[in-house]
Simulated assay, not measured.
Amino acid sequence: MKHAGEAVLTAILETAVDAIILIDQQGIIRSVNPATVTMFGFSKEEMVGNNVKMLMPSPDRERHDQYLQNYCQTGVAKIIGIGREVAGQRKDGTAFPMHLAVSEIPVQDGRLFAGIIRDITALKAAQDELTMLNEDLERMVRQRTDELRAAQAELLQQERLATLGQVSGGIAHEIRNPLNAVKTSAYYLLNANSPAPEKVREHLERIDRQVTLIDNVITALTDVARMPEPTVGRCDVHALVASIAATISMDVNIKLIDRIPSNLPTVHVDANQLSIVFRNLIRNARDAMPKGGTIFLDATSDERTVSMRVSDTGPGIPPELLSRVMEPLFTTKARGMGLGLAISKAILQRNGGTISADNQSGSGAVFTVTLPIGVIGDGVAG
């Protein structure tokens, strides 16, 4: 059995893919297997009887004897029983990466050390290639990210310029007409020969009215730009809308029907700012029906929001204009600056709400305002 075991061990050593080297306490090579010869390029005779440091590049070559001596004296292992990546050196002087696992073998006259070595050149090359590929990928991702950011910035700039063009066009329209009237009256006052006092007063009053219109446009634009942060609190939206509706004058041929449920949940908004929104919506609904009609106030709720609807029985909004009704200075009215809905949208965004416009299946427009429900104590919607 002993001879059979030795035969098996010899067969394993002879056929092992990894290099296996046996050294003594002084670092002298006692035996090597064929894989060691293939890996390092030395013959078996050139290695056996020589110090194992012959297979190491500097500086490990110069330090190996001290490493081995320190372990034999202290028993503190730096590599034995651990295994790690080290460098080897072939007969032709080329260095290569290898994984070395060392185990200690007690023998009758001391101890031997068996080292199992695997050449990891191909593995390191693959790792290096993978690292390079990752670096290339990261560089490409950074480049594409920068390109996307640049494109986004350019798109945002274009959108800002487009919005600026729309707003400036609206401002020009709203201001140019009053200025023309002012200019006409000023021309008359400067060039008329002995105008009657009542004529002078008429033109001065006209100038005063037109300057007031211009001031209103500028004030409204300033209000949009300087919209204060909301002072958020619990709000009974039904009571708020009812109180607003009571202050808006209606023609006798216009009815306002309140169908809002009395048990509607409270919302978490700035009540003062929200009142501006519903005042604008109710007035718009009234103005859309110069020949009379009905305004309906409805509401529904779920666990997170309250949805308020202001609808009318007027002609509705032309379909091609639905997407533009929230734009600053866009209006379908003969008189008006077209800022009411833009201000309303800005207010609702600051209060965590939304607004949408649509036409009803029968006739008339409907505006839906969605507001967050407030939770007592922490103000969390939901």
Rank of each mutant, 00 (worst) to 15 (best):
N253R: 13
T212C: 07
V48L: 11
L156N: 13
V232N: 03
N193G: 04
V306H: 07
E303P: 01
A77F: 02
P34T: 13
E303A: 13
A122V: 03
I317V: 09
I248R: 02
E320A: 15
P230K: 00
K255I: 06
M337E: 14
N253K: 12
T370N: 11
H64C: 01
N284V: 05
L221Y: 11
P261H: 04
A299F: 05
V211D: 06
F278M: 05
A192G: 10
H203C: 15
I82D: 13
V86M: 00
E6F: 02
P97V: 07
E138R: 12
P178Q: 02
R335F: 03
V52I: 11
V232F: 12
L348R: 04
P315I: 07
L204G: 13
T212R: 14
E320D: 15
G110K: 04
E6C: 02
V182A: 09
K291R: 00
A346H: 08
L221I: 12
N50T: 08
G27F: 04
V182E: 13
Q73H: 02
V102A: 10
A288Q: 12
N50S: 02
M337H: 14
G374K: 03
L348I: 11
S243E: 15
H238Y: 03
A19R: 12
A122W: 01
R30Y: 03
D312A: 06
A186F: 01
P178D: 00
Y188P: 01
G353Y: 09
V369F: 03
R309G: 00
K333V: 00
V237H: 07
I116Q: 07
I29N: 09
I373H: 08
N359R: 05
A246G: 05
M132W: 04
E138Y: 09
V217C: 13
G382M: 12
I23P: 09
G374L: 12
A77L: 04
E154L: 04
T94I: 04
Q108N: 01
A365K: 00
G75D: 00
D223C: 07
G170D: 07
G379N: 13
A186G: 05
K345N: 13
A125I: 06
V211L: 10
R139S: 14
N191F: 09
K255R: 15
F296C: 09
H64M: 01
E14T: 14
M54C: 06
R118P: 08
V8K: 12
A271F: 02
F42E: 08
D223S: 11
E129Y: 06
G75F: 01
T266K: 02
I373P: 13
A35K: 05
I214L: 06
P265M: 08
E138G: 10
I282H: 12
T184Y: 02
P34I: 08
I254G: 11
G27E: 05
N177D: 12
I260M: 15
